[in-house]
Amino acid sequence: MEQVPLAHLLILSSALFFLGVYGFFTRRNMITMLMSVELILNSVNINFIAFNKYLFPNQLEGIFFTLFIIAVAAAEVSLAIAIIINLFRKFNTVDVEEVDTMKF
């Protein structure tokens, strides 16, 4: 069976990464921004898996790293959601533009 070439996977992860960055910069809703961060993380995961499979098929480091990232991302999301809920309670909005009191 013919394999998918590595370059395809890298293109996919790059696309995913820039989608995430684009979303993070352009969306004003903090929840959506959080989702964009998840996209970025997932693009990284794809990279890890792909390199592990194509370059070092006898090893498992990339896969383990991916598992770690998934766990950490889950924890990070719960934290971020908590922060966002608190901000919502204080400012009554989830628009990131409104939350700008920490300045000069």
């Binding site: 960055v21 993070f24 910069f25 990131v96 533009e97 939350v99 700008d100 009191t101 920490m102 300045k103 000069f104």
Partner: peptide
């Protein structure tokens, strides 16, 4: 003025 309090501005600098 650099320290504007806008989160996305900061990330933009970072990026």
């Amino acid at each position: 003025r650099v320290q504007s309090g806008k989160l996305q501005a900061y990330t933009m600098y970072f990026f």
